[in-house]
Computed example of a mutant assay.
Amino acid sequence: MGRDEQAPADKSSLSCPVLRLAHVAKVYENDGVLTQAVRDVSFTVDKGSFVGIMGASGCGKSTLLNLIATMDKPSGGTIELDGQDLAELSEADLAAFRRDHLGFIFQEYNLLETLTIRENMMLALTIKQTPKAEIKGIVEHWAAKLGISEILRHFPCEVSGGQRQRCACARAIATQPALILADEPTGALDSQAAKQLLETLTMLRAEGATILMATHDVLSASYCDRILLMHDGQLRKVIERGNLSKQAFFTRILDAMGAVRKVTENDF
């Protein structure tokens, strides 16, 4: 990483919260045993930002993403997305809201193997009821942006993992969601493909996308604007990138993780 590589310019003009969590909690019950997966978590995600949720396996970050994705319901607190309190929506309304307001990038791509790359992208737009006359242009626009134009006729099994994940990114952004949720998106990629994907996410952010990414990887986190560091279901620390380079932010994240680890060890 170059010494003079700087973080994106401040976008204070875009500081309208897309996502707002207030005192969110999630408790699971199994055979009478209660497990608190998320404890009193509050934060906002501003429009046009790239925010990471970090923590070791079991820290609650995937549970939190599922709550935001409306795949699960919180035991307490409120979640507002694009100004809508999710608790006020019926099950039928939640499905439509998820379709219209959220984009998803998963670790295992979640592409349909029987459809071509082009058809996978078209399907997301068709489900959202995008006019047929517009779909071709949207697909070709984002395919060109993400460097996958030459593989649109191929099936997922015929392209690399990195290309499949870029297709997943194109599918997520093509519907113009209010928020893109990325759950460990580099987990199945080699280092070079992971770097390309993270640069793609940074580019999408520059194009106006709002991204919330769960990751345990410090290098992936260093591409974000802000990191929410979780431990044992709690939000322990918020780390701002500011004007730091990725290398300096990487170091700041490592230092913060060490400090949180030391504090939690002293709790015992």
Rank of each mutant, 00 (worst) to 15 (best):
T44K: 10
Q36D: 11
L89W: 06
I53Y: 00
I68W: 10
K61I: 05
F106A: 02
Q107P: 03
D85S: 13
E88Y: 07
L125R: 03
A69V: 13
A87S: 15
D10F: 13
L67M: 07
E91C: 05
E108I: 12
L65A: 04
N30P: 00
D40P: 00
L65S: 05
F50C: 02
L111D: 00
L86G: 11
D85E: 14
G55L: 08
K26N: 06
S15A: 15
C59R: 02
G48H: 07
D40H: 03
R118P: 00
T44M: 08
M121N: 02
C16K: 15
Q84I: 13
L112T: 07
G77S: 12
K61E: 00
F43I: 04
G76M: 04
L67H: 04
G77M: 10
L112D: 06
L112I: 15
P74T: 01
V45P: 03
L14I: 04
P74L: 01
E113D: 15
I105L: 07
A22V: 12
R118W: 12
E113V: 06
K47E: 15
T126Y: 11
G76P: 03
V24P: 10
F97Q: 03
I105A: 01
V18T: 13
Y28R: 05
T44A: 09
G77Y: 09
P17E: 05
A22E: 15
G103P: 04
G76T: 02
M71Q: 12
A124Y: 04
V51W: 01
M54W: 06
L14S: 10
S12F: 09
L67I: 07
D10I: 12
L67R: 01
R118E: 15
G76V: 01
M71H: 10
I105S: 00
S12M: 07
L64W: 02
G32M: 00
S75H: 04
E113M: 10
T70C: 13
V41H: 02
L81S: 01
T35P: 02
G58C: 10
M54E: 02
A92T: 15
F50D: 00
V45R: 00
L123A: 08
G83F: 06
F104I: 02
R20K: 15
S90L: 11
A87P: 06
G58W: 13
L19E: 05
L14M: 12
